[in-house]
Computed example of a mutant assay.
Amino acid sequence: MKTKLLLSLFIISLLLTGCGTKLLVFTGESENWTAKITTSQQDDLQESEIFLEYKGADPSSVKEFNYFVESNVENYGREGATLNKGGALREKGNMNRGSAKVTEKTVIEVLIEWNGIEETLTLKQK
């Protein structure tokens, strides 16, 4: 009886934990890059994760690069970023508290600079 009660409470707490969380995924690509920004929203908190992948044949040719994320809601970026051996970067983006949040209609621009080259990717909600 006690085990059933504990199991029931555990399942209910798992269900309630996911309530109110909204997940938005924005994707886009350019000639040399693929980008994905995943945004999780709950109450007044918005957290983002960015994933960038170099599509070229030799990821080691990208020593360091800069990226800048821009939308009508948030702007952030990083200089001196490096790719892993697979040619990708994944990191936490921006954390935002308040009423300004991305929506399904938000368009996000990602500017990437590397080896004297610039490309802008337009990300839209998937």
Results as ranks from 00 to 15, higher is better:
Lys101Asp: 01
Val110Pro: 03
Glu104Gly: 15
Lys124His: 08
Glu119Thr: 06
Leu89Gly: 14
Val102Ala: 03
Lys92Glu: 08
Asn94His: 06
Asn115Val: 02
Ile117Gln: 07
Glu118Arg: 04
Thr122Ile: 12
Val107Gly: 03
Thr103Trp: 01
Glu119Ala: 04
Glu113Leu: 13
Gly116Lys: 00
Glu104Cys: 03
Asn94Asp: 12
Lys124Thr: 14
Lys124Met: 09
Ile112Phe: 07
Lys124Asp: 04
Lys105Phe: 01
Leu111Gly: 12
Leu121Ile: 12
Gly87Thr: 05
Lys105Tyr: 13
Glu91Ser: 07
Gln125Cys: 13
Glu118Ile: 07
Lys124Arg: 11
Thr120Asn: 07
Asn94Ala: 09
Leu89Arg: 10
Val102Leu: 11
Glu113Lys: 13
Val107Gln: 01
Gln125Phe: 10
Asn94Gly: 06
Thr122Gln: 05
Leu123Val: 10
Glu91Gln: 08
Arg97Ala: 06
Thr122Trp: 07
Val110Arg: 00
Asn96Pro: 15
Lys105Pro: 02
Glu104Ala: 05
Asn96Leu: 14
Lys92Tyr: 12
Ile108Lys: 03
Lys124Cys: 07
Asn94Glu: 09
Glu109Thr: 15
Leu111Asp: 11
Leu89Lys: 10
Glu113Trp: 11
Thr103Ser: 03
Ala100Asp: 00
Gly86Ile: 02
Gly87Cys: 02
Ala100His: 10
Leu89Ile: 10
Lys105Val: 02
Glu109Met: 13
Asn115Asp: 11
Leu111Tyr: 05
Met95Gln: 09
Thr106His: 01
Leu89Tyr: 13
Gly93Met: 09
Arg90Gln: 13
Val102Gln: 02
Gly98Lys: 01
Glu119Trp: 12
Asn115Pro: 05
Ile117Pro: 00
Lys101Leu: 03
Gly87Asn: 12
Val102Tyr: 04
Val102Thr: 02
Thr106Ser: 03
Glu91Leu: 12
Asn94Arg: 08
Gly98Thr: 01
Lys92Cys: 08
Gly87Gln: 06
Ile117Val: 15
Ile117Met: 14
Thr122Pro: 13
Val110Gln: 02
Val110Met: 04
Leu123His: 02
Ala88Tyr: 15
Asn115Ser: 15
Arg90Asn: 14
Thr106Gly: 00
Glu91Lys: 05
Asn115His: 01
Glu113Phe: 08
Leu111Ser: 10
Asn94Ile: 15
Val102Gly: 01
Glu118Val: 05
Asn115Ala: 13
Gly93Lys: 00
Leu121Ser: 14
Ala100Leu: 15
Ala100Arg: 10
Gly87Trp: 10
Gly87Ile: 06
Ser99Asp: 10
Gly86Asp: 14
Arg97Trp: 09
Gly86Trp: 15
Leu123Tyr: 07
Ala88His: 14
Lys101Phe: 06
Met95Ile: 13
Gly93Ser: 08
Ala88Leu: 09
Gln125Asn: 15
Gly116Gln: 08
Lys124Trp: 06
Glu104Thr: 09
Gln125Asp: 13
Gly93Arg: 00
Glu113Tyr: 11
Val102Trp: 02
Asn115Lys: 07
Lys105Ile: 06
Ser99Tyr: 12
Leu121Asn: 01
Glu119Gln: 11
Gly93Trp: 03
Gly86Ser: 09
Gly116Thr: 02
Met95Ala: 04
Asn96Gln: 14
Arg90Ser: 11
Met95Asp: 04
Lys101Arg: 12
Gly93Glu: 12
Leu123Ile: 11
Glu109Ile: 13
Ile112Thr: 06
Asn96Gly: 03
Ala88Arg: 09
Asn94Lys: 08
Lys124Phe: 05
Ile117Leu: 12
Ala100Ile: 06
Ser99Asn: 10
